[in-house]
């Protein structure tokens, strides 16, 4: 088990006052709260500061932690003193119970977590018939899994009730059929795959919110897909028929003559499949060849001479 430097987690010195701790936690919580900050790593950081706050904001726990900590470095291998459990009895604060104590580190659990939660749960299990808790998670799939549908194996950490009435965590592997045409933000419900029920109550459900991993070619917005299509200047000017990928295989897309850079062409029904399939929005991106050969230079010079064209015609009056 690794030693955790809770002061460092909150960016504080050991001499920090209770107000300093409250303020530091609130500021960091606003920054890293997983509902606010969707970046990878924010959730882990939020758990870290919540755990630090849980200990440092409670005078009793803070005192015990301080007594323990002198001369230890973060990450250092750590064992609690042998008499720890006998000499400290911590109240499980409301905050911990709600946040779910299993979210905190082994270090926290060993020192502050264990003894209290279990008897409560056991008591509850004996008395009231209760539906199990729902589990919620996000599942990141490839956009292309939605094109045809796919089978994916997912591993979940799930709570399980032992015969003694304790709740333990274990890994559960599920084969999940990703339905064709699934879109981002949809919620997949797996009935009975959540937490176990108490005293004969039915199990909770597992809810998976679908997110797409970034795709190198397509962007998805609900059922519509968009794609940037690089085109040569003559293709945009003269019109062309260009092969474009779609979920159901490539199509030939007609580029109308005199298409401007950034023009969006809609291929109806060529987006994500479904009862009302989305559109594929193709955005033209004109790419200019460099004038770095005799012939290329000659071609540009011919255009400059023969095409009456003022690129800054719209500037009339500003010149």
């Amino acid at each position: 088990m690794e030693y955790k430097d809770y002061y460092k987690s909150l960016g504080l010195a050991k001499a920090a006052t209770a107000d300093d701790i409250k303020k530091a936690f609130r500021q960091l919580a606003r920054k890293y709260h997983p509902d606010i900050n969707k970046e990878a790593g924010a959730e882990a950081k939020f758990k870290e500061i919540s755990e630090a706050n849980e200990v440092l904001s409670d005078p009793e726990k803070r005192k015990a932690y301080d007594d323990l900590g002198s001369g230890l470095a973060p990450g250092q291998e750590f064992r609690p003193p042998p008499d720890w459990q006998d000499s400290h009895h911590f109240r499980q604060s409301a905050g911990t119970a709600r946040a779910g104590a299993q979210d905190f580190s082994d270090f926290f659990e060993e020192l502050f977590g264990r003894s209290r939660a279990r008897p409560q749960q056991r008591q509850r299990a004996e008395s009231i018939r209760m539906r199990g808790e729902d589990s919620h998670a996000r599942i990141v799939i490839d956009l292309r899994d939605s094109f045809q549908g796919a089978m994916r194996q997912i591993t979940l950490r799930v709570p399980e009730l032992t015969s003694a009435g304790d709740v333990t965590m274990r890994d559960k592997v599920l084969q999940l059929k990703i339905p064709k045409g699934i879109i981002e933000g949809k919620i997949i419900r797996l009935k009975g795959q959540g937490g176990p029920g108490f005293n004969g109550g039915e199990a909770g459900d597992l809810y998976l919110e679908v997110a797409f991993a970034p795709d190198p070619v397509f962007r998805a917005e609900r059922r519509d897909l968009s794609i940037d299509l690089p085109v040569a200047p003559w293709e945009a000017a003269l019109g062309a028929s260009i092969r474009v990928p779609t979920p159901e295989g490539p199509i030939m897309l007609q580029i109308p003559p005199n298409s401007a850079d950034g023009r969006e062409l809609h291929a109806r029904g060529k987006g994500l499949p479904g009862e009302n399939p989305g559109d594929l929005v193709v955005k033209l991106n004109i790419v200019w060849p460099r004038a770095d050969s005799e012939k290329a230079r000659a071609a540009y010079e011919t255009m400059a001479r023969d095409i009456p064209f003022d690129a800054r015609a719209g500037w009339e009056g500003a010149r």
Binding site: Q153, L174, P179, I187, R189, K191
Partner: peptide
């Protein structure tokens, strides 16, 4: 252990009573 559970994609047809919503959350 590995199995294929029954899945539903939630849409407007999946509703809860206020009591169910309270119990779930």
């Amino acid at each position: 252990m590995s199995k294929e559970p029954h899945i539903d994609i939630l849409d407007e047809s999946h509703t809860l009573t206020v009591e169910e919503l309270c119990e779930r959350c």
